[in-house]
């Protein structure tokens, strides 16, 4: 079984390499086609002369034909060299390594919150279809999906920070006067636990809650709706009737028979939702001044800073591949009908 899973994962990862290469090439071309000249942008000032810009262009390698630039870039990637950000002056790898944990921590927390809300809501709606509960859940989901994250984020800030004062100042991952934990994993919640610093953990956790909820609200709808639909379908199926006919208790039927079957499609949706969140949380990161990769990439894009944008897209594509493989494996474990080999 384990060997089978490993073989399958290996095959899937290998098979995704061409797609990743395609992503690199397309992003590269796209960046070159977009208007904006990085050399002009990064020249010392608006008064910079033509020669200075030409000079800059030459040092950046932008004077060569695009195919040549592309091959040089691919060669660099193969050596693990992703270039330097013109804005921060740091190697892109270093920047991303510092910022990725922030994004992942936010996204994972948001996903956990979303799941822990969506599953009970979806189940409750499915058990009482057509009732007030069902309609309330539907309304909640619709609200979550049709209010853009920057609006719901601001609303949450207004309510919990400004009006109620429960939430801390919604900027960055931790209060500016508090000291961040030493960098071990980069995930503040984990690092604080490792240090045994519970006050710090609480502070970071409070800071995380508002942005995480904002994102969770956004993805609540697909998860809850999927849970409801899938639960309804399963509850109407023959083997549930069998379970009733055999006199199994209702909790047992709902949890062990219905829910476990209903979760299978939810697993798939969760993978898609996670990938979407990683890319879509740029707005949340902006609203909450969250130092994540998405806001980093957006800044780079606005200033025609090629290297970070290209690296970001490649990173997202790789994460997407990994998430998909993980979902595949999870599905294979959860559903015996899927052959592992």
């Amino acid at each position: 079984m384990l060997a089978g899973i490993a073989r399958r994962v290996g095959r899937r990862l290998l098979a995704s390499l061409p797609a990743l290469l395609g992503v690199v090439v397309v992003t590269f071309m796209l960046m070159r086609v977009l208007p904006g000249d990085p050399a002009v942008f990064f020249a010392s000032g608006p008064s910079a002369g033509k020669e200075e810009i030409e000079d800059l262009r030459r040092t950046m390698g932008l004077d060569k034909p695009i195919p040549v630039q592309l091959f040089r870039y691919l060669g660099e990637i193969a050596q693990g060299e992703f270039g330097r950000s013109m804005t921060t002056g740091q190697p892109v790898v270093l920047d991303i390594k510092r910022r990725l944990p922030a994004s992942l921590e936010l996204t994972c927390t948001a996903l956990l919150i979303a799941l822990s809300l969506a599953l009970p809501l979806g189940i409750a709606a499915a058990l009482r279809p057509g009732t007030v509960i069902d309609h309330t859940v539907r309304l909640l989901c619709t609200l979550g999906v049709c209010v853009p994250t920057f609006v719901s984020g601001l609303l949450l800030i207004y309510m919990f920070y400004y009006l109620l004062g429960w939430a801390p100042d919604p900027t960055a991952r931790i209060d500016i006067f508090a000291s961040p934990p030493p960098e071990i994993t980069g995930f503040y919640l984990i690092d604080f636990i490792l240090m045994g610093d519970w006050d710090g953990w609480w502070a970071a956790f409070r800071q995380l809650l508002l942005p995480a909820f904002t994102m969770a609200l956004f993805v609540l709808a697909p998860l809850a709706r999927m849970t409801r639909a899938s639960m309804l379908a399963v509850l109407g199926s023959d083997f549930i009737r069998t379970a009733h006919a055999m006199g199994l208790s209702r909790p047992r039927i709902v949890v062990a028979y219905a829910l476990r079957n209903a979760l299978l499609p939810v697993i798939t949706i969760t993978g898609i939702v996670f990938s979407t969140m990683l890319g879509a949380n740029v707005l949340v990161e902006k609203v909450f001044s969250w130092p994540g990769v998405a806001s980093y990439a957006l800044d780079a894009l606005l200033s025609s800073d090629y290297a970070p944008v290209q690296a970001f897209v490649l990173l997202m594509a790789s994460i997407f591949v990994l998430v998909n493989v993980t979902i595949d494996v999870l599905y294979g474990i959860a559903d015996p009908r899927v052959s592992v080999a």
């Binding site: 199926s237 023959d238 083997f239 009737r241 069998t242 379970a243 062990a256 028979y257 476990r260 079957n261 299978l264 959860a334 559903d335 015996p336 009908r337």
Partner: peptide
Amino acid sequence: NPRAALNPIR
């Protein structure tokens, strides 16, 4: 339809 009458993942 006995196959459908049994829980597929148990």
